[in-house]
Design a binder for these strands. Structure first.
Length: 559
RNA sequence: GCGACCGUAGUCUAGUCUGGUCUAGGACGGGAGCCUGCCACGCUUCUGACCCGGGUUCAAAUCCCGGCGGUCGCACCA
């Protein structure tokens, strides 16, 4: 089989030091990798571009929270439940299956909390057949895809390495919200490592056990979910496979703008649609053209436990086909609600209504004179009891049943004065809803490299956009003599002093040096020749066209 | 996790079937030097590998077992 583009990129990545598998000195460990100099620079540049496009432009903010969290957090978030699968192993052929799936096929419903020994009993008693070898001999064990550790010296204090960065933003929501002076809607991002103990990590950087995420949690008021930026992405047509198309295996996408997709009902939240379009533009900026991108809906059964709608953003690769580079999920209020229920902080937000609402209501006040007159010594007791209710509730009860029952006394309507009042309501409490664009940085690096890779005259060219190229300039003396090399070093030092990433190379022929920097994506190569010594001009040679221009040294950084 | 195939320098590979001549050969790459007036020229020189562990044998890159890793298929990917 012909070596695929993906394989070529992998081998280039290792040869030139973008990334490689970790722990090779010890035979390698699956699912872990190292970013080299070029890789870290590329990653930093990608992250910087993302921040510019998603945060700075919209005034959204960023936090950094711990990568280890206590058991309760992931219990509340639902991860302990849904990351732990009961795996049933066939003792004959040793294939493993989800126990609940096999039981469900036979119409036996079990819950997530069903004990393992009970599951095993059910599997064997009901003679569930192994799909592979048609035997029925099972052992049921748990497999937890979160990495588990202990916090402090006591083994019963279990902690987990976070399987997503998102929970940090949910658990800390109230503090984030307060310290940003109650802004709503509020976009909060976190960029960092997440960990999943994959059963079989494979495919290079595509499935890792430790990986980097960029996650943006966008908190908004569900009563006011219109997105003011939608018009900014009108020109972006997305390839969309909605739930219906996915369900029937239709691979031909709709081509729609965010607004059109909302209007047609394919995307149920305007903000979700906006971020999807913006994400497509982000990948465009990284050099992945729109025709190599699509958004594929997750079906109800495959969605995460928190999601009401999820679109995977996919990029076409030669070897692996469509790979997911980002997930766009409508998480509703699932997470904040869970943390409110289990934790000690209420994650609601108070909304000030633009148009205060006038609400009519009836209030009931007890006629104290009449009560005193008729109940004498018991009156003060009655007042204490009545004060437990507010006037609105009292009025409601009187309207519904015509009386108030207290300890040993029943007071009828005649003991109260009813007042009709109109109240102004200017605030309302709500738990924000969340849409989440979530990016896997390593996969984006793969997609970016693959779509930047090309070959010309048997040489490799990595056409990384200038914004994200690890090195912006390379400086070469045409030949290493007659003072050209000293002059070249001067230019090199000048650019370096500006804080711009730049390489110097005087080894071998000039053509060889161009070739070397082409394959790591340096967009500009500056050559110092004999004319430079006379008039301080140099040639700037462009990576993608191989065109050369003569410019003054002082102008060189403006190219 | 299961199954099939595979594992020799940074990369590609010769050698493995049929154990010894392998102190493991080549090409590319990389370093140093020479050369070089614009797209991987040439020369000199250096660099560097049998995945790990155990077994069989007088002798293991080669045969056997286990582990680790890779690719593919199944399962998993919340």
């Amino acid at each position: 089989m012909k070596e695929s583009l993906t394989d070529k990129v992998t081998s280039l990545a290792k040869r030139r030091g973008f990334y490689w598998q970790a722990y090779e000195a010890y035979g390698g460990v699956g699912g872990f990798y190292v970013l080299g100099d070029l890789g870290t620079k590329l990653k930093d540049n990608i992250v910087r571009l993302w921040k510019k496009m998603f945060l700075d432009k919209y005034g959204f903010i960023e936090i950094e929270s711990p990568t280890i969290g206590p058991y309760v957090v992931f219990e509340a978030s639902g991860h302990v439940g849904s990351f732990k699968d009961a795996m049933s192993e066939c003792l004959k052929c040793h294939n493993k299956y989800r126990a609940d799936h096999l039981l469900a096929e036979q119409g036996i419903q079990v819950s997530e909390s069903t004990r393992l020994d009970v599951l095993e009993h059910l599997m064997n008693e009901n003679k569930i057949l192994c799909p592979e070898c048609r035997q029925s001999s099972w052992r049921v064990t748990a497999f937890l895809t979160m990495f588990q550790t202990n916090i402090g010296p006591y083994s019963e204090n279990i902690g987990f390495l976070r399987p997503e960065t998102a929970q940090g933003m949910f658990v800390e929501f109230k503090q984030i919200y307060e310290s940003n002076r109650g802004k709503m809607p509020l976009g909060v991002a976190q960029i960092g490592k997440a960990y999943r103990n994959e059963i079989s990590p494979r495919q290079g950087l595509i499935r890792l056990r430790e990986f980097s995420q960029i996650e943006l949690e966008f908190f908004f008021n569900p009563n006011n979910n219109s997105c003011e930026y939608l018009h900014q992405v009108d020109d972006i047509k997305m390839n969309i496979l909605d739930e219906k198309k996915v369900a029937r295996g239709d691979e031909i996408p709709y081509r729609l703008s965010a607004k059109e997709a909302i209007d047609k009902g394919y995307i149920i939240q305007p903000w979700l649609a906006f971020f999807m379009a913006l994400s497509q533009k982000f990948l465009n900026e990284l050099g992945v053209k729109s025709e190599f991108q699509r958004f594929k809906a997750k079906l109800e059964g495959e969605r995460a436990h928190y999601s009401a709608q999820t679109y995977d953003q996919e990029v076409l690769t030669e070897k692996y086909g469509w790979i997911e580079v980002a997930g766009h999920a409508y998480r509703q209020d699932y997470d904040l609600k869970s943390h409110t229920l289990k934790g000690s902080i209420d994650m609601y937000v108070v909304e000030e209504l633009k148009e205060p609402m006038r609400e009519k209501k009836t209030l009931a006040y007890v006629n104290s004179k009449r009560v005193k007159d008729e109940f004498n010594g018991k009156a003060s007791e009655i007042f204490v009891e009545i004060s437990k209710y507010d006037p609105k509730t009292l009025a409601q009860k009187l309207n519904e049943v015509g009386k108030i029952e207290l300890e040993g006394v029943v007071l009828g309507r005649e003991y109260f004065t009813l007042k009709e009042v109109e109240e102004t309501i200017s605030t309302r409490k709500f738990i924000p809803h969340v849409v989440e664009p979530s990016f896997g940085i390593e996969r984006i690096i793969c997609a970016t490299l693959e779509h930047a890779y090309s070959e010309r005259e048997n040489r490799v060219i990595l056409s990384l956009k200038e914004d994200i190229a690890p090195y912006k300039f390379a400086v070469f003396p045409l030949v290493k003599k007659d003072g050209l090399d000293e002059k070249a070093k001067e230019v090199f030092n000048m650019i370096k002093a500006e804080g711009i990433s730049v390489l110097y190379d005087d080894d071998g022929s000039i053509g060889r040096r161009y070739a070397r920097v082409d394959e790591i994506g340096v967009p500009n190569a500056i050559t110092i020749d004999y004319q430079t010594l006379e008039d301080d001009t140099v040639t700037v040679r462009k990576r993608d066209t191989w065109d050369q221009n003569r410019v003054k040294i002082s102008e060189v950084l403006k190219t």
